[in-house]
Nucleic acid binder design. Structure first.
Lengths: 216, 216
DNA sequence: ACCTGAACACCGTTCAAGT
DNA sequence: ACCTGAACACCGTTCAAGT
């Protein structure tokens, strides 16, 4: 039974789970996380709110799926053959770019990550590089966690400040420091990242407090 | 709830803004952020929801005040006379402890920070140490930002995983990695922090990407 | 100065019932 | 298999009015 018949005779189009996630990502980028409600999403899809719950368990799982979409480019490329510190920097930069690619991307990913509903990006990738290089997997995990938390936290802050600036510097805030706000718009991200990568390099060279194995 | 006796003649007790923030912090610790609503808080205070808006501009500002309370111990102690890297580690540890001291503390602080409604802790402190040591203020800022974002991000994740574990490992999650979950319960925090501090130390020694200056 | 009462414009989610 | 309709149990916030 169920012989194909996707939309015979011009009936209302049926949606897949993927369509719902696509629509959610698009709506997120347009209206921002605070205004991304299940009801608005339903309206956007031309459907009753309750219909969404056929495709998706609940809002958090939907946001997790959206997060996975946002993070897709991070786990993509890897040439292998690089050292762990170089790989870590590349992952960090890709993660940063991916989070910035959608409105409130960092916040969405941050909470899915915290809830354990998406795999930390880079984790598997860096582990592979570590193996190749004869470094321990737990060192790779430490590096991956450090980079992930730093980048997500930093980008979250960055993104929020941008939308605050866009909306106009309004009531009661501590006031976004009036240095440059639209120059290269890096906000010190690369400086901070350099710091972390310097740590990775140092540790890899055997200069840390507690990583006894210099090489093997 | 509120002990104080400014209540002569048995009239209904009046609340100050501080009372409201106190109650919010207490309720946060008891029920968690998702269940901390203005209506529940009002009930907790024996007051109509609308009454809260006399004391507080809105929910976000209330949470900012709660965040400032949580962060108070971080900016407290400073002995001076330490190097920047040692100071950075101490700040990181105090921040970590303070965030863990209240349920969902990291999440609350994270969003207040991102919205620019609280000053980043440590910022001023580390700047002072930098001046004392003849380091640049912008280096101190970079260090402060790096440490802050890392610690807040990491602790957020840590705290969320704890309450997930407490509630029982339920439906659909990626599954909290089944290593140890109740050992020292450090989750790699100190290992990651070591990495960052190694970066700070390296940069202070002039050993960043360019290696010209061995010391100063 | 501090609070009530009532309302406005929303939420996420469930569930029987339809096709 | 996919969706509607209606309901449940909530939200944050505003504002006139009371004391």
């Amino acid at each position: 039974m169920i012989a194909d018949d996707s939309n015979r005779g011009g009936r209302a189009p049926r949606r897949s789970r993927d369509d719902v996630v696509d629509a959610a990502l698009e709506l997120l980028d347009r209206v921002g996380l605070p205004d991304l409600s299940m009801r608005r999403l339903a309206e956007h899809l031309g459907v009753q709110p309750s219909a969404l719950y056929w495709h998706v368990e609940n809002k958090q799982q939907l946001l997790a799926a959206v997060s996975a979409r946002i993070l897709r480019p991070v786990s993509a490329a890897d040439e292998a053959g690089t050292s762990l510190d170089v790989a870590a920097r590349e992952v960090a930069v890709r993660l940063h770019d991916s989070l910035l690619a959608y409105r409130d991307g960092a916040e969405v990913v941050s909470s899915s990550l915290a809830l354990g509903l998406v795999e930390p990006p880079a984790h598997a990738h860096l582990r592979a590089v570590a193996l190749e290089r004869g470094e321990s997997a737990s060192l790779a995990d430490t590096i991956a966690d450090t980079v992930t938390h730093f980048v997500v936290g930093f980008t979250f802050h960055q993104q929020q400040r941008r939308s605050a600036d866009a909306w106009g510097a309004a009531s009661g805030g501590v006031a976004a420091s009036p240095e440059r706000i639209a120059a290269g718009d890096d906000d010190g991200f690369t400086a901070a990242l350099d710091l972390i990568i310097a740590g990775v390099t140092t540790v890899l060279a055997g200069g840390a407090t507690q990583y006894p194995e210099p090489r093997r």
